[in-house]
Design a binder for these strands. Structure first.
Length: 277
DNA sequence: TTAAATTCCTGTAAGC
DNA sequence: TGCTTACAGGAATTTA
């Protein structure tokens, strides 16, 4: 499922092809995938717009449609199984294709999503936040300005399990189940410990593990553990480097004991009872 | 305010 | 083999 590194890969791949392109037509095939504004208005407002920039915030892909401080944004969240692809129009249409944008270079930008947990939005950031369509996201964990002290300040006032806090997009943006479990393992932190119980050194390890892991995963073009594919339909490589995610019951790579499986924040959580304290 | 539970959705895999 | 059931999870929504 797409988390920060996967979304970053898609945005970076699309950027050189989309910037400067104008949307010549917009066809929403499955209306409920568009959460703002009404799908018919979404199609009309998007048509004729020029894409000026493509960026990422948390797990959201942002297409900037104006050159100003508060641009109109086409926002794409991939949910669990969403795929955004830039293809020639003659490419055979896959199942679960929910939206198609025609571009002035003859290509199409297609949104496909088997489980339909993803969403499309159109509006300024302020408008979308005010409408409750876009949450107030926490800091970017790959931003050099995000320090261990910042993370400590956010964790030590909370009693929820660290795992739940890492998944909370208002605490830190872009972390999902895979990288939450993996960063706790690398930092040797038990995922069920209350955020407030972590020492500064433990948070320091967690901060370093999280940032290092996310940068590594971006370099490896993300983890294809389920249906994740990049803008060309290709898999990432990071899944081969995962140490705990999806390995419940199997031996810990560090100590050899079977990895524990518990449920935290409604998510399957895998960790090593010996290595993570 | 915070935290936990529930909901959405379909492909996959386990179990009988 | 074929059917049923459980499970996977991001985030909005509901409940406590």
């Amino acid at each position: 499922m797409p988390e920060l590194p996967e979304v970053e890969t898609v945005a970076a791949d699309l950027r050189p092809h989309l910037v400067g392109r104008t949307v010549t037509a917009c066809d929403v095939r499955f209306p409920t995938i568009v959460r703002h504004p009404e799908p018919a208005r979404f199609e009309v407002e998007l048509t004729g717009r020029r894409i000026e920039a493509v960026s990422r915030r948390g797990k959201y892909i942002l297409h900037h449609l104006d050159l100003c401080a508060s641009p109109l944004l086409l926002v794409v969240h991939l949910g669990m199984t969403g795929q955004l692809r830039y293809v020639p129009p003659e490419t055979p249409e896959p199942d679960h294709l929910h939206a198609v944008l025609d571009l002035d270079d003859g290509h199409q930008l297609r949104y496909r999503d088997t489980r339909r947990f993803g969403r499309l939005l159109l509006g300024t950031e302020a408008e979308l936040v005010a409408a409750g369509k876009l949450p107030r996201l926490g800091p970017e964990p790959v931003d050099p300005g995000f320090t261990a002290s910042d993370l400590y300040r956010r964790l030590h006032v909370r009693r929820a399990p660290v795992k739940a806090l890492l998944l909370d997009q208002m605490v830190v943006a872009g972390v999902g189940n895979i990288y939450a479990d993996e960063s706790c393992f690398r930092a040797r932190v038990r995922p069920d410990r209350p955020g407030s119980s972590l020492s500064r050194p433990a948070v320091g390890r967690l901060h370093g593990a999280l940032a290092g892991l996310l940068h590594e995963a971006i370099a490896n073009r993300g983890s294809s553990v389920d249906s994740y594919r990049d803008a060309w339909g290709e898999m990432g490589d990071q899944q081969h480097l995962l140490q705990v995610y999806g390995r419940g019951g199997k031996p810990c790579f560090r100590c050899g004991r079977p990895l524990a499986v518990v449920r935290l924040a409604g998510r399957t959580t895998v960790f090593c009872r010996r290595c993570q304290r």
